[in-house]
Design a protein around this nucleic acid. Sequence first.
DNA 1: CCCGGCTTGGAAAGCGCTTTCCTTTTGCGT
DNA 2: ACGCAAAAGGAAAGCGCTTTCCAAGCCGGG
Lengths: 335, 335
Amino acid sequence: MQQVAHHAGVSLATASRVLHGSGSRTVGEELRRRVEAAAQELRYVSNAPAQALARATSSVVGLIVHDVADPYFGAIAAGAMRAAREQRLMVMIAATFREPGLELEYLRGLRAQRARAVILAGSGTADAAATAELAEEIAGFEADGGRVVCIGERGPDLDTVAMANRAGGGLAVRGLWELGHRRIGVVSGPSELLTVRHRLDGARRALRALGAPLPLRAVVEGDFTRAGGRAAAVRLMTEQPDLGALLVLNDVMAAGALAGLRDDLGLAVPTRVSVVGFDDVPFAADLSPALSTVRLPLEQAGEAAVGLLLEPPGDAPRRVELAAELVLRDSTAAV
Amino acid sequence: MQQVAHHAGVSLATASRVLHGSGSRTVGEELRRRVEAAAQELRYVSNAPAQALARATSSVVGLIVHDVADPYFGAIAAGAMRAAREQRLMVMIAATFREPGLELEYLRGLRAQRARAVILAGSGTADAAATAELAEEIAGFEADGGRVVCIGERGPDLDTVAMANRAGGGLAVRGLWELGHRRIGVVSGPSELLTVRHRLDGARRALRALGAPLPLRAVVEGDFTRAGGRAAAVRLMTEQPDLGALLVLNDVMAAGALAGLRDDLGLAVPTRVSVVGFDDVPFAADLSPALSTVRLPLEQAGEAAVGLLLEPPGDAPRRVELAAELVLRDSTAAV
DNA sequence: CCCGGCTTGGAAAGCGCTTTCCTTTTGCGT
DNA sequence: ACGCAAAAGGAAAGCGCTTTCCAAGCCGGG
């Protein structure tokens, strides 16, 4: 910038003001033109780290997900990035690959980068120690002037965009019930994930309200992956062959479940057993059969998260609630 | 850090050396301990921008993709992030949402961030003007000491991890041919994308070598999306109903094509028409019917890209070639 | 016609680090 | 015991910006 200023015959201060001026101060027409011309000519590229240092704030926001290749997070990330673009923010993504410790580590890293904000997109966990450590780091981050927003519940005093996981679980169960299903099983994910707990809880409550509490052996846990869903579904239908419908707690597990039911067990979906997934990831409609599922507005969640980041810190924690919707396709049938 | 140094009773220099020392200089056991204790106690968090400024280099690498929600890029990003993690690099992702100008804009942004390197993951384009502008920006970036690597061809003097797009196109066509198909059509993507051109070209050549050149009207273009694939496939089969096999130039288009064939046209796959996709994205095997496709090692490409970034600049441009493989599933049948 | 107030340009003091160059210690050979 | 080299700590000069504070220059009102 030194060069640009000299080339334009102005001071450093003036050059800075026209190139990155935060509006508080205005530069005369003539000088402004000269500076811009000089910058153009010298192919000046500003130095973001230097700016961040001087301003004590940057234009990067962090996004911490479990796995970028997972369509659930892909959709959220897409939404977030679209919104970020409009605000001219750069997005730094970190994937924990489901290693719990990494979330903390990346949050520290983002803090070191002096990210202006971070979005915690992955599910919270029931591990109290880890949660406490994370909370401390979050507090530190916020004390430094950073903003944190969570997608999904993490704690009552955090800004969060809440997904209707409980309601969604209820929706799915009631949908199945209305189709005439009475023997419903659940293919669940790792029980330490809050998301899983909420979805399961929603399903449980709905069933209880319907007068048919979910038996313990009708729910089985698997990894939150395709393979996990497949294994769990196969196990469940083997141990409880009289089940007529399965609620699978996320779509990628459901994809595995469908494969397991068909290829490992030879059970026809939906004639022999109905299957409902969760999330409505983009490929859900393309599965075989097209997956009935609980739709969550994923992209919108990403957008909402950066929306929250932009609002001034505020006194009370902010929340935006996103609704779930049951979409029935071909993997469910009336009994 | 000032504080830490003072608290430990040492100079700033010493504190810096123990906290971020680049190894060239060693600090005595005693002082080292004291500094570390102080840092711990004061919850010191280093300031990456300041370091970047002082060192004139950072630990962030940029990754520019078309769309994070697209499983193709999701897989590449996952591979890149896994590799980045091992090197303790932070990844800044930018999604262009297929707007051509954005790629240039983001490259500038990453340059301003003083990213140590950037990976251009999206396909190059045949637009000469845009390519030239991009080349200039790349040159500038490299002149500043940054590294650039492309996934897919972009230019002969760039480090690139090359995907076997041509070979893959050939593989698909020969696979179909061996199944007895003689009337093969192609659902292509936007012809300005180099990736598309190469895949198509590979298919063309193979067909010509087989003695059955691809007729012009047997290839139709669509957007590189599910909807684009659906529309294009429907159009193609309507105009050329005697086609017995379709090569669709990427899996997400193929998902759309499958849907269109089934729901819009009522054509049975694979009995009436065989379909081969391209990429082998994770959900390909879960489509209905399970999609035969040309597998590209996507994650590996991401990893290879960051591998290239780490190697010293080198004299000649480096290349790593990744092979394609035809995987036949249920969307293809012998005629 | 002069003076107060407003506008606009510039000088300079940081922002939080790294690193060069000195200075002081320490260890060792003879 | 002495001298010298190597090791280890510290002072200070930046890195490329932003922004505060000053100094001019300009306007209109008295």
